[in-house]
């Protein structure tokens, strides 16, 4: 019996609680007249960033493509004459993209980043296909200062073997010193 009364009381309290919201202010933001604040980590349009030297950060490792749950990223690796990897083409089909940010999480070089821009509607779906030239920005995005090749073992232009962080210079194989 007490339980029933308690249950009834609980329902009544709920009603009163909801009724009290009649006098509270609405949280609605009247977009587009009023632009909402979007945090930098908001997941919107995807960009490809550059490292501090201005080179493409993307090394075409394909991890974003494989992490993508809707398989909307396709790319092809190629390399420059010094052995630096970069994408020959990098295509995102935004008409399939669900802005989940898995690509950003998978990216080992901070190259692919989601930005707070979500206003990318098109009348023609074909225009939602972004190629590398549409994706690549000239800045470092959310992670300034990071350069993948400074911590990787591969040598590239202006970074020889042993010049990466925490690397000793190349060994002299012919040395027999203990």
């Amino acid at each position: 019996m007490l339980n029933i009364l308690k249950a009834i009381w609980s329902q009544l309290v709920t009603l009163v609680e909801v009724l009290r919201h009649t006098f509270s202010k609405a949280d609605t933001v009247q977009y587009p007249e009023e632009m909402p604040y979007l945090a930098p980590r908001n997941r919107g349009r995807i960009v490809l960033t550059r490292d501090p030297d201005g080179e493409e950060r993307c090394v075409a490792c394909n991890l974003c493509a494989v992490a993508c749950p809707v398989d909307c990223i396709a790319l092809q690796k190629t390399e420059d004459e010094y052995g630096r990897w970069y994408p020959e083409f990098f295509r995102i089909n935004f008409s399939r993209c669900i802005m989940c940010g898995m690509c950003e999480e998978a990216c080992p070089t901070y190259a692919i980043q989601l930005t707070p821009d979500f206003e990318m509607c098109e009348y023609d779906r074909q225009n939602m296909v972004y190629e590398k030239e549409h994706l690549l920005i000239s800045g470092e995005g959310k992670y300034p200062g990071y350069s993948f090749y400074n911590v990787a073992g591969k040598s590239i232009k202006n970074k020889d073997k042993g010049e990466a962080r925490n690397e000793s210079p190349p060994v002299d194989v012919r040395s027999l010193l203990p």
């Binding site: 909801v18 009724l19 919201h21 009649t22 509270s24 202010k25 609405a26 949280d27 609605t28 009247q30």
Partner: peptide
């Protein structure tokens, strides 16, 4: 419903 759910 909007009013009670703090919407417009």
């Amino acid at each position: 419903l909007g009013i009670w759910q703090d919407r417009l």
